[in-house]
Design a protein around this nucleic acid. Structure first.
Length: 631
RNA sequence: GCCUCGGUGGCUCAGCCUGGUAGAGCGCCUGACUUGUAAUCAGGUGGUCGGGGGUUCGAAUCCCCCCCGGGGCUCCA
């Protein structure tokens, strides 16, 4: 059975002529408003299992009708959907059954007569769900969904495989097997997303990170901008800047050269227009004077233009230019914007590597893959990995892939997913995506490395080798993914930790306030302030709670601010010249973990924990009473 | 973009169904209390109820349009 579902403003028809197989009917014309029009072709195959085909068809129609909230349904026989039709008798039976069953479910049904030539008029609503086609079998499992757009495109679908920890062979994944085969929960979440499986069981609330960004005064929506654009408060700005420093360092260690390029481009440039057009509707475009301009959606544009003008020699390769694109702009669909996960303006670390040939590209791909994975270790946000290759590329480079995947599995104890794409449809022949899994088991896609075989030519980027000129291979790499998503991942991770019983917090080097000093009595204030100042001199972000609250309340507030080390100073501490430090990492909601140590020991401890990570000073006043209230 | 739920002091929310002068807690301010590990007590301040239009003698409440946010679709080079 093939059906075509059109969400219509109206459908009207009128019979024009009988055919030999025409049914007897009084319904010679009809019209229905705001309806779901279902064009149907019953096929030979359906005769084998009429009952199930009927059931599956009804399910499909009802599901769509519910989804679209329509109560009017037109059942319209439409033989042209199939070249292998059922006998007229069976077809008519099924159509009549569909009509009857739908009426029993209280739908208003209009059925166009079978076996007549008819003229019809239809007005399609035109929203994304308004046109759907379905192929229905007698099989009781759920039917494959093919949207009308995809149908024209490809017969062959990409395939998804698992390379498991123990296994040496690729296992093809499908909806049924997935739960049994993939043991790692997070990797399974990624596979589920890839296969487009919907999990309706869990009721999803606002993601925890959305609550945290406001509560912790990190950032918030800016209602006076476009949707999906954020304002950043001092604490959030500090976290962003630290992450920026971190990526800057890691890129330089790996031979990248930071540059900066414009955020907007003139579409008169042919290569830019071509590259931009591939991205479709999802960009900001505007006219200024007589120019058509666009806002960049990645840093490719500026870097490619820069490379086009460079005189590149083989000895310069691999040549890596890096830019933190503050911002990249993508005009995402309104309903797609969620907190820090999906934005219209975001900050993307973007590095492009010019490689002499595929050999060099593959070697670099591997280096950059490990660099990306290291960011997951450093940020304590483990990634799940999916490689994507075109079939051709994979066939030629299987061994390389298996070697890389094996090393990964040995190091991380986790399998990887592999997607094989029948034909190259984008600029890349191979890529790897790494994702953090959020509280609701949805992937936050972050770092990526891609092998681009198209852009060098498009942007006229050449390598000069003797008297030869060649087009290089270019790698795209984002070592962490967007800064906003990194923060999203960190906060979701913090919430997951909280669900497991530990207190949520950021890594020490990213905590806006690393130490809070709390005096017990008025007469401890000077001593406490002295301790705070000493820590500050040693490049530790510290504040001092001089507010007129009880000690209990100050402790509570320090907890709400996720301060990793809380120092309470009373008589005992002043007398013995020692600190009592509450360590958040080792505490729980019920019991706080305290340790005695000297100021020097505390300094040493924090230095050690943040060793190798960037530092920036706290921009807020040292006295808590003077902190501005943003939220 | 579609469907759906929501927007009420700085924050979290009640009131809306059944129209009749806007409520609570937190914060903030003032006062009392010399306070030892997750909220000390009392008083006070604070709101054109997201915006616009309509119905009504009267709208936070009912209706329409728009903006913003959450969820579900769809999308994600």
């Amino acid at each position: 059975m093939k059906i075509l579902l059109i969400h219509s403003d109206y459908l009207e028809f009128k019979v024009t002529e009988k055919t030999k197989i025409a049914e007897d009917t009084d319904t010679l014309e009809g019209r229905m408003e705001d309806c779901l029009t279902v064009f149907m072709a019953v096929e030979k195959e359906d005769e084998k299992n009429q009952e199930n085909v009927l059931k599956n068809t009804l399910n499909e129609i009802i599901k769509t009708a519910e989804n679209l909230k329509v109560n009017n349904i037109v059942v319209y026989p439409y033989a042209h959907l199939s070249s292998d039709l059922a006998s007229p008798k069976v077809a008519r039976e099924i159509l009549v059954d569909v009509e009857r069953e739908l009426k029993e479910k209280n739908y208003n049904v209009l059925r166009a007569p079978f076996g007549w030539y008819k003229s019809f008029k239809i007005s399609c609503k035109g929203h994304p769900l308004s046109e759907l086609s379905r192929e229905i079998t007698g099989d009781m499992s759920s039917p494959e969904e093919i949207s009308i757009d995809e149908k024209n495109k490809e017969k062959k679908e990409p395939k998804l495989y698992l390379l498991d920890v123990e296994g040496e062979e690729l296992i093809e994944l499908d909806r049924k097997k997935i739960n049994k085969i993939i043991k790692d929960e997070e990797l399974r979440a990624l596979a589920i997303k890839e296969l487009g499986i919907k999990d309706s069981k869990e009721d999803k609330r606002e993601p925890p990170h959305v609550k945290y960004i406001r509560e912790k005064e990190i950032c918030d929506y800016e209602p006076s901008s476009d949707a999906g654009h954020f304002r950043w408060y001092p604490k959030g700005k500090l976290i962003r800047d630290l992450l920026q420093d971190y990526i800057y360092n890691i890129v330089i260690e790996n031979g990248g050269m930071p540059v900066e390029t414009p955020v907007m481009y003139n579409l008169e440039n042919k290569s830019i227009k071509e590259h931009a057009d591939k991205f479709g509707e999802r960009q900001y475009r505007f006219t200024q004077g007589n120019k058509e301009l666009m806002l960049r959606f990645a840093a490719c544009f500026g870097q490619f233009m820069m490379k086009k003008d460079m005189y590149i020699l083989p000895k310069h390769l691999p040549l890596k230019l890096y830019e933190l694109s503050t911002y990249s702009f993508r005009y995402e669909q309104r309903g797609e914007l969620v907190g820090l996960k999906r934005l219209r303006a975001f900050t993307m670390p973007d590095m492009h590597t010019v490689c002499l040939n595929m050999d060099q590209a593959m070697k670099e791909f591997e280096n950059q893959f490990w660099m990306c994975l290291k960011t997951g270790d450093d940020l304590n946000t483990p990634y799940s990995v999916i490689f994507r290759y075109t079939e051709d590329f994979f066939e030629e480079n299987k061994e390389w892939f298996f070697k890389m995947a094996k090393e990964y599995r040995e190091k991380y104890g986790k399998g990887v997913l592999l997607e094989l794409i029948p034909e190259r449809s984008h600029y890349w022949v191979g890529k790897v995506d790494m994702a953090v899994i959020d509280t609701f088991g949805r992937p936050i896609e972050n770092p990526t490395v891609q092998i681009d075989v198209e852009s060098a030519k498009r942007f006229n980027i050449k390598v000069h080798d003797g008297n030869k000129e060649t087009y290089p291979i270019i790698l795209h790499c984002s070592p962490t993914g967007s800064i906003e998503r990194v923060i999203c991942g960190l906060l979701e991770r913090a919430f997951k930790d909280f669900e497991k019983g530990s207190l949520p917090m950021l890594p020490i080097w990213l905590s806006p306030i690393q130490v809070r000093v709390i005096p017990v009595f008025e007469n401890h204030k000077n001593y406490a302030l002295g301790v705070a100042e000493r820590l500050k001199e040693n490049s530790i972000r510290v504040d001092y709670d001089d507010r007129e609250d009880s000690v209990g309340k100050k402790i509570r507030n320090a907890g709400k601010d996720w301060v990793p080390y809380v120092v309470v100073i009373g008589d005992e501490e002043v007398e013995n010249n020692i600190l009592t430090v509450t360590i958040r990492k080792k505490s729980t909601l019920k019991k706080s973990f305290k340790e005695k140590m000297t100021v020097d020991e505390l300094i040493k401890r924090i230095k050690e924990e943040s060793k190798g990570y960037p530092y920036r000073p706290l921009s807020l006043p040292i006295c808590c009473s003077l902190h501005p209230i943003f939220k």
